[in-house]
Design a protein around this nucleic acid. Sequence first.
DNA 1: TACACCTTTTACAAAACTTTTACAAGACCC
DNA 2: GGGTCTTGTAAAAGTTTTGTAAAAGGTGTA
Lengths: 126, 126
Amino acid sequence: MGPLHITDRHELSYRDQHLDVDFEHKTALLDAKPLGLTRKEYDLLALLVQNAGEVVTRETLLERVWGYSNQIRTRTLDVHIRRLRKKLGQHNSAYIETIFSVGYRFQPFRAPRVVQRLAPAMALGA
Amino acid sequence: MGPLHITDRHELSYRDQHLDVDFEHKTALLDAKPLGLTRKEYDLLALLVQNAGEVVTRETLLERVWGYSNQIRTRTLDVHIRRLRKKLGQHNSAYIETIFSVGYRFQPFRAPRVVQRLAPAMALGA
DNA sequence: TACACCTTTTACAAAACTTTTACAAGACCC
DNA sequence: GGGTCTTGTAAAAGTTTTGTAAAAGGTGTA
């Protein structure tokens, strides 16, 4: 049906302290209660969650969730992001970050923020 | 002998005791915390860092980061340098040198040399 | 058809970012 | 020191991107 085929990672679900996304059944729970996402909202959240910790560009989102080729000017992504955040309630801003002029990034709840660990310094006097 | 060995090669990242620049993800960490650079700030820092130890002329910076041809009079480079330095915090002046009338130079962090005093010079009230 | 629900667009507000402006401060040369 | 050019800085102005509410459009179903 949808233009979306998520196979980047083969996780069956995502779970953290508050959010629970079941990729098999395409459902999402927040604090154990159904989020009641629409199709597009779910697709959007799923794509972000499956790339948790990494920026997903607007272009990618529009292509994978909407099937839009580039160069299409629309605000529908913004509107869906807004509704997603609304349904995520208190945690919304912690979950979905805006990367200005690039896209959005889903951050796991209270996740370690460091993408790449600092290696033990090669410092002389360390 | 610095931690960085850049010639013409495309390094994936730069790293020293405090600063960590990921050219792939276009992110920068200072003491393991995201630096929160804007696009232009990142581009500017990246270009300087990729030429660490060498002077990058104003002309080059304006051309590569801004796409400005020569002979354009603008202060935007200065302003961006200032904001970069601000975000680099304490280490800013050590990191970004001004080469008067020429340009700027990024210098890899060097651990402050421990001065070996022969006498027990812990004289605070000197 | 009428209705309920979902999606997209529209129009404007707000926020983020960039550039310019104006002047202060510093560097260089005589 | 005085003159001149360059850089530093703060703030204003300008531009672009994102947020938001509401309306309009679309789809499926009873």
